[in-house]
């Protein structure tokens, strides 16, 4: 396993995909977590909308930067990490490198686990970088608005980071499985993104008006991610928070769903790679 992980870590370090995906995500977090809300804040009438402005500004200051960053994960963060997951396994089919990858010594299970584990390390780095970028942005907002620099508790920052990583790994694992299921990148991305941004949202939205669909929503990855972020105290969209955040299920149930997706993604990818002929 150590050799497989060393190989996959080197491959991941040298590839462009983690940089592109990570860079894109950091830009999105800063733009949609801070940039757009700040524009809204700046355009609100200071007299008639003073309360809304104050609430919005609170989310953009250093004391809330960690939760604001985490609030970006349930919808767009999930989609981005799913893309990363697909790029962990899918390109090996396009490059035709699976035979070489699987004939060096490490077993098939080890190679798949090493790939996802290397991806998980990248996810941690991306989450830390996104958090750091959020903190820097919030400091800029505080300085521009003349607000005091109040820092969040270290435990709260660690919890936000943990939630971000937990959510990201679940989506990464799902993406890795899709890359293997569809033996490539294109179809896996298409199906994954349509499901994530389309069907999951539609089902989740419909569950709000059709109670029969609530059990379905309870096993969806997006709502589980949103519920876990909500458990951090991040407000939902209706409360002026981020898209996808909501208390659809309790924190422990959300954790169980995320764990189940992580395990299922790994299991599907591993079983398929083990069972299939590599041609």
């Amino acid at each position: 396993m150590r050799n497989a992980l060393a190989a996959e870590a080197l491959l991941m370090r040298k590839r462009l995909a983690p940089l592109v995906v990570g860079g894109t995500w950091i830009v999105l977090v800063v733009a949609f977590g801070f940039g757009v809300p700040y524009i809204v804040y700046a355009t609100l009438d200071p007299v008639t909308k003073a309360a809304d402005r104050a609430a919005l500004l609170d989310l953009l200051l250093p004391s809330a930067a960690h939760t604001t960053a985490a609030g970006s994960y349930p919808l767009f963060g999930g989609a981005i990490m799913l893309i990363l997951g697909v790029l962990v396994t899918g390109p090996e089919y396009r490059w035709g490198t699976w035979p070489a990858r699987l004939s060096q010594g490490p077993g098939r299970t080890q190679v798949v686990l090493a790939k996802v584990l290397a991806g998980a390390v990248v996810v941690v780095v991306i989450a830390v970088a996104a958090l750091a970028a959020s903190m820097v942005t919030s400091v800029v907002v505080a300085l521009v608005e003349g607000q005091p620099l109040t820092w969040p508790a270290a435990g709260a920052v660690a919890a936000s980071l943990g939630v971000a990583v937990f959510i990201s790994v679940a989506w990464l694992s799902l993406g890795a499985a899709l890359g293997v299921i569809f033996r490539g990148v294109g179809t896996a991305l298409g199906v994954g993104l349509v499901w994530t941004l389309g069907l999951e949202n539609a089902l989740s939205g419909l569950a709000g008006v059709v109670p029969a669909l609530e059990p379905v929503r309870a096993v969806l990855l997006g709502p589980a991610s949103g519920s876990l972020v909500a458990a951090l105290g991040v407000p939902s969209l209706s409360e002026g928070g981020a898209v996808g955040v909501g208390e659809y299920m309790s924190g422990p149930v959300a954790c169980a769903v995320l764990l189940a997706y992580t395990a299922a993604g790994l299991a599907v990818a591993t079983v398929l790679i083990r069972r299939r002929d590599i041609t």
């Binding site: 050799n3 497989a4 060393a6 190989a7 080197l10 491959l11 040298k14 590839r15 462009l16 390109p91 490059w95 035709g96 490198t97 035979p99 070489a100 990858r101 060096q104 010594g105 490490p106 190679v111």
Partner: peptide, 19 residues
Amino acid sequence: AFVPHLSGRVNLQVLARAR
């Protein structure tokens, strides 16, 4: 078959580390 945008050396290093 190799990862096309990586150098020959890195491609071999990936295989070597797996061994």
